[in-house]
């Protein structure tokens, strides 16, 4: 069920990327898509009733390993957030430059290249 919600979030993002004409809205859609994927990754490592994978002094390793959620997807999500940040900054910078050149955020008016 929750997985389906994640996939829906991803689908909403993809819809926005395909349909929207405004450059900034495309950027926002891509960000939504990425959050959907991050959520999916976190869910992959989730364990019902698990606790944070940080060891307290005095806890036995076996007991700890039995109760903790999987830490690896969390590390992956952190990395993917950092990458997303880089891509987002890059996209926003290009949007600003595009606005400087064309005076508009509408991609249908940016037609120097035919693809």
């Amino acid at each position: 069920m929750i997985y389906a919600l994640c996939l829906m979030l991803i689908a909403v993002g993809l819809y926005g990327v395909v349909v929207k004409k405004n450059v900034v809205k495309i950027v926002i859609s891509l960000a939504i898509m990425e959050y959907g994927i991050n959520l999916l990754l976190i869910l992959v490592g989730y364990r019902a009733g698990g606790h944070a994978p940080i060891m307290e002094p005095g806890a036995s390793p076996a007991e700890f390993a039995a109760g903790a959620v999987d830490p690896l997807p969390q590390a992956l999500v952190l990395t993917s957030i950092v990458i997303g940040l880089g891509v987002l900054a890059m996209m926003v910078a290009i949007c600003i430059r595009l606005y400087e050149r064309y005076g508009t955020f509408d991609i249908t008016e940016m037609r120097r290249l035919r693809g």
Binding site: I10, G13, L14, V17, V23, I26, L30, M33, E34, I37, V87, M90, M91, I94, C95, L98, M110, R112, L113, G115
Partner: peptide, 15 residues
């Protein structure tokens, strides 16, 4: 314009 196009499609691919 080309860079933006590349960026959007590349990000979708990465996703």
């Amino acid at each position: 314009e080309a860079s933006f196009k590349y960026l959007v499609l590349g990000s979708v691919a990465s996703a």
